[in-house]
Computed example of a mutant assay.
Amino acid sequence: MHSGSIRTGYTSHMAAHETEIKSSTSIVPCFLFVELVLMAGTVILSYHFEYTDTFPVHTQGFFCYDSTLSKPYPGPESTSRAPPRLLYPLITVLPIIMILLGEVISVLTHPHWKSREKVIACGDCCFFNPLLRRVVRILGLFSFGLFCTVIFAGAVQTVTGNQTPHFLSVCRPNYTALGCVSHIQYVSTPHACTGDPVLIAEARKAFPSKPAALGAYSAVYTMMYVTLVLRIKGSRLVKPSLCFAILSPSWLLSLLRVAEYRNHWRDVLAGTIIGSAIAVFLVTSVLNNFGSSSGSRPEELEKPLQDPQLNPVPPLPPPPTREKAMALRPLMSLDPPPCLVPVTPDVLIPSNCMTSQV
């Protein structure tokens, strides 16, 4: 009878812990009037950088017969080995699928997962599930970082106006009219090019490489999610293999951009650094390494609940009395007390012997 009541109390305590609800009146207004506004602003700004001429690109000059800018024109982006129809789905869809699978696996394999997040009640009608909140937070920040990467890379391209390796092939300058007689002569005339203006404007957006930045951001964000969230027991090679598989398309994309004369190696390196830095900042500073919003550590949450009736704490021993302490005091001394051994009638020398006999 007593054990049944203990088990019933323990079960009710566990159920109360799992169904804990936190009330909040600011989550919906903050989401509608702050986060959605910022997200819409980043989308609109990235659209203007990517598909319009709202921000004119800086017109940078070039040296006559510059060999670093005279590579053959590789064709439009659609003819590349990594075309946009393959690149952008790989950057966006693959991380989303991996994050969704990771969250579902975490729910199914961790019994104390619900203790990491709380159900948020906004009023009497809106209840936000912990899994839904976490997925929206992770994927929403991932989308926000993608648009921020586009904005940052586009802004740097607009300000610098660095040329691609095939710039002179699409520029088609008239060296005779420009008076080019040596390789060290610098041409700064805005109307020095006679080629297609659209291709020329695209050839002035080389630094940093936007595809390399997006690929690095997506790969690093997903790799950090796999490393910090997924817990695979019994194998030490699964996580490194997944991370290398995620990073490999990004590295291959960077090599293709250089091999096809679409970007210089420094453009690809700068894009990789920018995308990786944005991903690391969002994961570590904003998401706190994909931890819970309450700030509690997983080690503390995964400890099983202990009932004081099932696991009684043993009583502490009573303190020793004064008589026992005085009785044990001589036995606890390391060195015996010194005694006096008479050597001569007039000299007494201290010694460590236990007895003194003449």
Rank of each mutant, 00 (worst) to 15 (best):
T222S: 09
T11P: 00
I6W: 06
C339Y: 00
P190N: 13
A40D: 03
W113N: 02
L348E: 09
L247F: 07
R231G: 00
C243T: 09
L90F: 04
C339M: 09
F147Y: 14
A219M: 07
A327M: 05
T59D: 15
F244A: 15
D307T: 07
A325Y: 03
P317D: 05
A16Y: 09
C193N: 08
D124Q: 10
R262H: 02
C126T: 15
M326E: 14
P84K: 09
P320H: 15
L328Y: 10
S106K: 12
A40M: 03
A325Q: 13
Y10H: 09
P130A: 08
L255N: 07
S26W: 12
M223S: 14
G140E: 02
M354D: 13
P76Y: 03
W251M: 08
S294I: 02
P29W: 05
L252T: 01
I138A: 06
Y186R: 15
P350V: 01
L228T: 07
G275C: 00
C30S: 14
L252M: 13
S78Y: 01
C171G: 00
G102I: 01
T164H: 12
V93D: 09
G140T: 00
K22Y: 09
T344N: 07
I349P: 02
V283S: 03
V268I: 08
T160I: 09
S296F: 11
